[in-house]
Design a protein around this nucleic acid. Sequence first.
DNA 1: GAGATTTGCGAGAACGTTCTCACAAATCTT
DNA 2: AAGATTTGTGAGAACGTTCTCGCAAATCTC
Lengths: 364, 364
Amino acid sequence: MAIKKSSAPTIIDVAELAGVSRATASRAMGGYGRIADHTVEQVRKAAAELGYRPNEVARAMRRGRTKTIGLVVIADFTNAFFDRATKSIVDAAKSGGYQVLISNTDEDIEAERQAIETLVDKQVDGLIVVPSTAAVHDHLAALKKSGKPFVLIDRRVEGIVATSITTDDFSGADAAVRHAYALGHRRFGFLIATAGTNGLSEERPALLISSIEDRVNGLLNGCIDLGIKKPQQSWIFCEDNRRDPELAVAKLLDRPKPPSVIITSNNDMALALLKVAGNRKLVIGKDISLITFDDSQWAAAMAPGLTVVSRPVEELGSLAIEKLVAEIKQAGQPAEKIVLPTELIARGSVANLVMYPQNEPENY
Amino acid sequence: MAIKKSSAPTIIDVAELAGVSRATASRAMGGYGRIADHTVEQVRKAAAELGYRPNEVARAMRRGRTKTIGLVVIADFTNAFFDRATKSIVDAAKSGGYQVLISNTDEDIEAERQAIETLVDKQVDGLIVVPSTAAVHDHLAALKKSGKPFVLIDRRVEGIVATSITTDDFSGADAAVRHAYALGHRRFGFLIATAGTNGLSEERPALLISSIEDRVNGLLNGCIDLGIKKPQQSWIFCEDNRRDPELAVAKLLDRPKPPSVIITSNNDMALALLKVAGNRKLVIGKDISLITFDDSQWAAAMAPGLTVVSRPVEELGSLAIEKLVAEIKQAGQPAEKIVLPTELIARGSVANLVMYPQNEPENY
DNA sequence: GAGATTTGCGAGAACGTTCTCACAAATCTT
DNA sequence: AAGATTTGTGAGAACGTTCTCGCAAATCTC
């Protein structure tokens, strides 16, 4: 009777039981190299008997790759991005044989720095990063220099040569303006969440993350193109997703001539508008109209449904894995800047004013 | 001029540059064992110069622990559970010095099995599992037997001696019934999502996951206690979260005497109700009332706000990490069954019928 | 049937770290 | 000042794999 081993069986135990060498046992399990069929069977049987499972840490150590991908995201779960992106990335990674180590930065650049460092220390084979700011990118430059494969998603970072997968938020924003205009709206309000500014501001901050930059430019483009006057007076930039978005909404609604339609840059802002509107007994899609970015189940189910700029988040995630895995398998892939199309989904949150268009073509 | 090393510097490179042995360099970096102050400084300087970072895989190999926790969840993102739980777990893990390897089972038992296996192979120090079913648990028994620490969250599994962290869904469900009753409701409808049944059913399936079991029992308890007649005729059990929840809603609404209030077991069901109600021009909180499980930002922001049974998901996540880390640090902790309180948050989705209570005390 | 090739397997190194042990030098005792 | 203790360091093993190499046996070639 053999002495019961306390810890998990290793390839050595398997080799002993099968009466072969470590190397042969390894070959039999791994199915590589020259090896006789009957030996494979013998070893497999021994492995099954012992309940042997290869130690992936030892394997990673020896092989120099962990089959693990690091994900650095902003776990901002009202954003309807984190969850969808995470799920699609985890699923796509799995089908490629990779597991995902997840890190949350909460939009903090120091946390992002540290997350990347920790993940690299853990020898992930590659990284997917949602950069929290466009202002700082020395850590990404260092990552690039280290040769560790990585892909940026949701936001580009100027000055970093890396594959990025983003969405065409410019066109989405532009389409949102045109949609509201076509329904007769002339007085626009824009509620933009940004990490860069301090508190509330009506001035456009100098440096925005690319997705917000694109949205602002798209909105502006639509306004200018349609001849909407003084669009620059219609903005509220609201620091960060957590700080007083309801105050920003109130500021917009309390204007002498409030907007008939408000376009919000994310769901946080949209929810703030919903809340304030509810408090004031303003009915969405009638007293005040709304278009927001990012679709979600609840935006579709509400009455009225929210008109949204939908972004292909799942595709973004799976494409990120695809590109990352390609680079892991074969270094030196060209850095691509992939931009996925957005789509305006019209529901009931934008009132149709065409019968009675607002009488003043110029802005308030 | 030294030859430029292509790969990342190791402790050996540091030792060489500092002019000490591997062991000494390791001690200096790790800050353990006997070592002279000036040597530490010398080694630290060399490490900084080379940009040395310890290889955590090698470290894990040697130390026998990875400082990694495996998370096996159901990435069902309409459930408002996955994202909140994941975030709180990731954050709590980080502050304990752990990273999180995430796996999604999509409520599939085979995927769950495989996920646990893969995670164990990767030598995670412990696991947090949202079990996808109560029917199968041999894999959890095997996990238990292997001695690898793990904690169950959201759902208990009978027959498995393990620490579990759940919420008091029984009381939550009971409170929901009483709340509607107090507002004058007598005709109840219950919409229960379940993985066990086939399609739609009005019969209670034999084996439900514990959280659903608790909710059903809680609802039943409230009904019986309040003297609501024939509550057994008010149920629709709907297979899985993805299969025809809208059909289930319709079935309930198309009854000869439809319910005045519907209590749904999750947000998927609630959203289905919202959708169908919207299509039929039924106003929530007026024509039809709704209470659902799990709070969310959008449930609070909608007009009317959704009355919900709120569960402390963040606390659940951080507590799971706490218990798991305790077991990792010191094996043999007692298996606790922790039940966190739920809270009914009354908003506007339940109509007040007290002025005109429904005339029939018995059920339809 | 002798040389050339193929086949199957084992010995041992390697991955990068930490840990145990031994030992010399330094410091402390009395 | 001689023994006892403490201090700092290095050699080498260990963690569990995989991989390279070499060698003997088996098979092929003409």
